[in-house]
Design a protein around this nucleic acid. Structure first.
Lengths: 111, 111
DNA sequence: TGAATATATCGCTGTTTGGCAATATAGTAA
DNA sequence: TTACTATATTGCCAAACAGCGATATATTCA
């Protein structure tokens, strides 16, 4: 892949920044199962309504979610399933790290 | 994939956070070509030595880089090539966004 | 030794941002 | 209309952090 220019790096960093937040990752994880209203997310995450709404706005503005009014409610859903590939790659790295950590304590030969 | 627990989400978010910074992405991009000393990065990035060193420390602590002393210098290199898969997925998303944006202006049928 | 170079760290500052309470807005139902 | 529910927004605060200059530490060489 060609080298990215500064403003392209900025754009990539901005996407990572959106994913760099546990509450937002939890929202994405919930929505992966099925679309949800704001209130459903508030309940399943145990977070405040204002905060869930704010984080949903950030995810939506980043183009990661779709939004649709349904009567009195607003239903959010995943627009970019590709984000879950990202999470899986990161999880793979964390598992490798954990294995290395374990090896440091337990894996070295006894003598 | 199974649902991630809160502290696993924290760990994933922490990795994304490390990648959510243009200077660090630029460093990774440079190191992808070949390993570099701090000074080489300072010159090629046009950044201050203190900042490059700080960002290298953050990347290293996150387990993304390897570090090796070579005489008077310290050579950094990529430890987790998987991060470039992450960047490519994000770039793919950005390209899709750009295409959508373009379609909004130019792609709709004229009449 | 001492000087020179390379890297890391410290203290600081301005900016960003997650979380909160309060409030505003939008839709529904009576 | 009024009351009610769902969602979004605003203003605030505290924590996190990138970038900076100055300085400390490490390594080499004379």
């Amino acid at each position: 892949m060609a080298a990215l220019k500064p403003d392209q790096l900025d754009a990539v960093a901005r996407v990572f920044r959106v994913l760099a937040e546990p509450t937002r990752l939890a929202i994405l994880q919930e929505l992966r199962r099925k679309p949800r209203t704001v209130n459903e997310l508030v309940e399943s995450l145990g977070a405040k309504q204002a905060n869930v709404s704010k984080q949903l706005g950030i995810l939506f503005d980043a183009g990661l979610l779709d939004r649709e009014r349904s009567g009195n409610c607003v239903v959010y859903s995943i627009r970019e399933p590709a984000i879950f590939e990202l999470c899986e790659i990161v999880c793979g790295k964390l598992q490798r790290d954990a294995r290395r950590q374990y090896a440091t304590f337990a894996g070295k030969p006894r003598r």
